[in-house]
Amino acid sequence: MSNRRLNGERLVIATHNAGKLREIGALLAPFGIECVSAGELGLLEPEETGTTFVENALLKARAAAQAAQLPALADDSGISVTALGGRPGVYTADWAERQWFEGESGRDWFMAMGKVEGLLCEQGPGVDRSCWFSCVLAIAWPDGEEVVYEGRSNGAFTWPPRGKLGFGYDPCFVPDGLDQTFAEIAPEKKHEISHRADAFAKLVAEQFPG
């Protein structure tokens, strides 16, 4: 809980991920917040050395707020699979990182989803496919004040991937109560039910009361 409020300020979104920026920008649009990404400002991405979503979100928000001297919002999110002991969890993006022998550098999300599927298949056809997406939103101000909001979306891991509307692991995640993946449903629908939407609802309740 924080008494600090975003009052129509310019807000740095501490990400270089275009898909994540679009989602966050759409969620903040109704509140008249001017958003600019860390990528647009040429800010370097700090090394994510935290072992929890909260630690990494705060690390990114603090770095952007100090570099830009503006309030900054960072998101750290990922998928956790029950049968894999909660992996990949905080290392969700790392599972998509290509090694030098795998071709071009950068992230390959199909490869990452394939790693999850491969590990599940090793456990047999009756494996528990339940999983959940987690999201932590952290706001940091240049003077050192900060606050975090946590959200979650439960579902199941499906294979093969389906849909082209999402990003990351979205094509393999079927949220509870639906038979479509996050990458098959319209973005506005996803904005209502996602882990990020859950965290944003808590942010909005505190930052934009009434």
Rank of each mutant, 00 (worst) to 15 (best):
R5W: 13
G8E: 14
E9C: 13
R10A: 13
L11P: 07
N17G: 02
K20N: 05
K20Q: 07
L21R: 09
I24W: 00
A26V: 07
L28I: 03
I33M: 11
C35Y: 13
G39I: 08
L41F: 04
L41G: 05
L44S: 15
E45K: 01
E47F: 14
T49E: 14
F53W: 07
V54E: 15
E55K: 04
N56M: 00
N56R: 10
A61H: 10
R62K: 09
A63N: 12
A64H: 05
A65H: 01
A65Q: 03
A65I: 04
Q66I: 14
A67H: 08
Q69L: 06
P71W: 10
L73Y: 12
D75H: 10
V81G: 03
L84C: 12
L84D: 03
R87Y: 13
P88R: 03
V90C: 03
Y91K: 09
T92K: 09
T92Q: 10
A93R: 11
D94S: 13
W95K: 06
A96H: 11
E97F: 03
Q99E: 14
E104P: 09
S105G: 15
R107M: 07
G114R: 05
K115E: 02
V116K: 00
G126W: 00
S130E: 08
W132H: 14
W132E: 11
F133Q: 07
S134D: 12
A138C: 00
I139T: 00
A140E: 11
P142Y: 03
E145H: 15
V147G: 01
Y149N: 00
E150M: 12
G151A: 07
G151R: 01
R152L: 12
R152C: 04
R152T: 05
S153D: 02
N154V: 11
G155M: 04
A156V: 11
T158K: 07
P160Q: 02
R162W: 13
G163K: 02
G168N: 10
Y169H: 08
D170S: 14
V174L: 06
G177W: 01
G177C: 10
D179N: 10
Q180C: 14
A183T: 06
I185N: 02
P187D: 08
E188K: 10
K189D: 15
E192A: 13
I193D: 04
I193T: 07
S194G: 14
H195E: 02
D198R: 02
F208S: 00
P209H: 04
